[in-house]
Amino acid sequence: MITISVKVEFSGGLELLFSNQRSHTVTIPSTDPATSKPTNLQNLIFHLRDNLLKERVGLFVENDTVRPGILVLVNDTDWELEGEGDYVLKDGDEIVFISTLHGG
């Protein structure tokens, strides 16, 4: 199975749901076994939910995407400019999730 490796970072309080660890290196298959399509950002979000998330799933994923109020950056660019969940991951990508919901 061919895999790709991406760097994932959580901040803004979101790291608390992921063993209080901000930076993770995640290896996932380069194609989604269910659809045989190249792995996209939505696949990564599900992978994180199923493998790395330690508590309170509802605070990360809602309606098959990240919960409203969580910002996602793909190589420092707003994911809204990159097709959001449809963005096809490349080896070495850096994906950042920032919660805007914690304290001001």
Binding site: S11, G12, G13, L16, L59, L71, L73, D76, D78, V96, I98, S99, T100, L101, H102, G103
Partner: peptide, 25 residues
């Protein structure tokens, strides 16, 4: 505001208050 802090690499603190962990929900 969050993007500004991120792009400028500003140093900020983001933990829930221990007495009201669900206040932001």
């Amino acid at each position: 505001i969050v993007m500004y802090a991120y792009f400028k690499k500003l140093d900020y603190f983001s933990t829930e208050c221990i007495y009201s962990p669900d206040a932001y929900r």
